[in-house]
Design a protein around this nucleic acid. Structure first.
Lengths: 189, 189
DNA sequence: GTCTATACGTCGATAGAC
DNA sequence: GTCTATCGACGTATAGAC
């Protein structure tokens, strides 16, 4: 239990909640200050700008941590299962908030970095066959696309579809880029 | 040649150019008015709001028109080839501008509609095997993911990679969801 | 029916006094 | 460190002139 919060912590906590709930544009510095119980000028003074406050608050790292490490035969399914597994809402909210703020160049750079750290770095040395780095980037693109439809535009069909079916179906498509066949069956099985 | 423009056309033209160049947030109503040579209040008077002006200006339709119609065996490759073919820059710019403005609920709804019209509608009745609609939506997700990396965060590797290689590689991953094997070879070939 | 002029309220950010 | 006061720019509304 945190009994007392520093001003900075209180601001960061309030900002995180508001940014996830109302987006970047929909959250004013004044609203963050009110929620944290501090003066609006303090928010800028502590974080430099609204943009930096947003970047300091949002965190995409660690959301696919272990999924790229296991056996390659089930990598496709494991990536989707990890995405849809425990903490699904937190992951989707974080991605949603980030992409909806991509009008900011710094936010876009952060997203590109996240792709690099989560997919290109871990997967490039592991993928067999030619063009491993390209395929690692395209696997990241596939995950981003699924996140787009589920978190950004919130396609009601994809949001409510059976996670196991989604895992098998989209996992097979990702597996096509891994280059190692999944013994459990074909894409449309 | 258009010799004279109505005020409304002049505003729309100026808005389209500025939105594509500087994004939604980065383009002020006053800047659009100045570029069009009219009073800022006129912009709102003609279009109702900056948000509606943006939606009236941007257009995603027709960008994948014929690609979903040809033979299923090469659908995956054809989708990527269409994306990267003539008009590539226009397509990427339009998608970029739209996604960077997804803080607006209307923009998100428009993106979801575009997915529906471009992929779900045409492809669902054509895909063989089970869960055709789900697979059509996931094909749309794959295309969105590639667009994300190329147009939104502008991954320099994907932007500059050989289009033919990208077409073959990512096309194979899409083909895994089509459910009809592509005779030209496997995903990693 | 256009268009101009002006103004309102809110925003992110800053300067300077406690 | 914190607050007060304020800045310039923003989206938008309106009243009234052509």
């Amino acid at each position: 239990m945190t009994v007392t919060l520093t001003t900075r912590e209180a601001i960061a906590r309030a900002a995180g909640a508001l940014f996830e709930q109302h987006g970047y544009t929909g959250t004013s510095v004044r609203a963050v200050a009110a929620e944290a119980g501090v003066d609006p000028a303090l928010v800028i003074r502590h974080f430099g700008s609204k943009e930096k406050l947003f970047l300091d608050t949002m965190d995409l790292q660690g959301h696919f941590g272990g999924a790229t490490l296991g056996p390659l035969e089930e990598l496709g399914e494991r990536l989707v299962a990890t995405l849809l597994g425990p903490g699904r809402d937190v992951r989707l909210s974080a991605y949603r908030a980030m992409v909806r703020a991509t009008d900011s160049e710094l936010v876009r750079a952060r997203l590109l970095d996240a792709l690099e750290e989560m997919f290109v770095g871990p997967l490039t040395p592991r993928l067999p066959g030619p063009h491993a780095e390209l395929r690692a980037r395209l696997i990241g693109a596939q995950v981003a696309g699924l996140l787009d439809q589920m978190a950004l535009v919130e396609d009601p069909v994809l949001v409510s579809v059976d996670p196991d079916l989604l895992t098998r179906t989209y996992g097979a498509a990702i597996q096509a880029l891994v280059g190692v066949p999944d013994p459990t069956g074909g894409p449309v099985s």
